[in-house]
């Protein structure tokens, strides 16, 4: 049942190259995924601002357009306003827990250092071990880094809270039962006469194509994230062959091979979307001209646009909260490891101190 404990051990040069490679890879993937998501958000934003597709579905002028009803169902299914309210309520506690672990850890170092300094003041040259302050520099630097990370997290929490405050009213409306939601949307003239007209058909087809592009991107995101490759083999080979690792060159070549094609597809998707959105703008202009707008239909349109945006905001806030919760939980694990490092070194220093004291007393 022998298992090689040192199976994963590699030369230092390979270890360092792998760290940099992994950073490059995750930067690349994050940028690619970020680009795709930004494009989808842009698309959703443009459509919402044009009241699409709701305007095309709004036959009677007083019932809820299908796409809005679907958006409402979708966020109710995801837990509605309550689920994001709960996550927001939990954030401060998560922050506090992390702060406490960090504060405890640094306090341990401070206390041991104080004792060490007191003993050095008392015994002078006879207390000849390295001062704790010097030994603790790297740990304190790590601690300072954690503090700045927590400060950034606090700012992120604030952004989420503000987003929530801005949109919660409309989100709440979208979560209401159908009859209440319908009553809250002003009535207007029906646009029945426009159904079947060419511009409506064109808009429908353009919007369908945009939906397809968005779906493709979801698939693409999954594929990009699923790419695996063991770069350590390449680095080991290079080291054995050349005696050194040209990390930058090897990494960029490999990353291009792994992700180059995906990058092309993403760029193509952006170009197609831009074209389609342009077409939508043109068609929508025509559509607006045909529609007979008055104060009521404008009011109705405004509310429908706000409801569509509320859905997008809900999705964004949910994602932010999921990210924030995961961030704090991941950070707790990391801080607990840091706390262990601090308590281990303090324990070792205490043991050493006790031995030194014994020696001094005996001498």
């Amino acid at each position: 049942k022998f298992s090689d404990l040192f199976e994963k051990m590699v030369p230092m040069a390979v270890q360092q190259a792998m760290t940099i490679y992994n950073q490059r890879k995750s930067d690349f993937v994050n940028r690619l995924v970020g680009t795709m998501r930004e494009a989808t958000n842009l698309c959703n934003g443009v459509l919402a601002s044009l009241n699409l597709p709701a305007a095309l579905e709004d036959l009677s002028g007083d019932s809820i357009p299908q796409s809005i009803a679907e958006k409402a169902r979708s966020i109710v299914q995801q837990g509605g306003l309550q689920s994001i309210e709960q996550l927001i309520k939990d954030l401060p506690e998560l922050l506090t827990r992390n702060r406490e672990i960090l504060d405890e850890s640094l306090k341990m170092l401070d206390e041991e250092e104080t004792t060490d300094n007191d003993l050095r003041a008392k015994f002078n040259q006879r207390w000849n071990r390295t001062p704790s302050g010097d030994l603790y520099k790297p740990l304190r630097a790590e601690g300072a880094n954690f503090r700045s990370i927590l400060d950034k997290a606090v700012q992120a929490d604030q952004v989420v809270k503000e987003r929530y405050n801005t949109h919660c009213e409309m989100i709440a409306l979208l979560c209401k039962p159908e009859n209440e939601l319908s009553a809250a949307i002003p009535s207007a003239n029906p646009t029945k006469t426009l159904q079947g007209s060419e511009v409506v058909n064109m808009l429908r087809s353009q919007i369908t194509k945009l939906d397809e592009i968005k779906k493709e991107r979801e698939t693409l995101e999954g594929e990009v994230k699923a790419v695996t490759f063991d770069m350590s083999v390449s680095f080991l080979t290079a080291l054995a062959r050349d005696g050194a690792i040209n990390e930058e060159q090897l990494s960029s070549t490999q990353l291009e091979q792994l992700y180059g094609a995906y990058n092309q597809r993403v760029q193509a998707s952006l170009r197609t979307q831009e074209e389609l959105l342009g077409q939508v703008q043109t068609s929508h202009q025509e559509f607006s001209n045909l529609k007979q707008s008055n104060a009521e239909s404008n009011q109705r349109e405004e509310v429908l646009k706000k409801l569509a945006s509320a859905h997008d905001s809900y999705v964004e806030i949910s994602n932010n909260l999921r990210e924030g919760t995961k961030f704090y939980n991941d950070l707790t694990e990391i801080l607990l490891k840091f706390q262990n490092k601090c308590s281990d070194i303090v324990f070792a220093r205490k043991t050493e101190r006790d031995e030194l004291l014994k020696e001094l007393q005996q001498s």
Partner: peptide, 16 residues
């Protein structure tokens, strides 16, 4: 992404 990345910190640094 809104929150800072913890990627660097997840890697166990070599203790010298």
């Amino acid at each position: 992404s809104l929150y800072p990345s913890l990627e660097d910190l997840k890697v166990d640094k070599v203790i010298r």
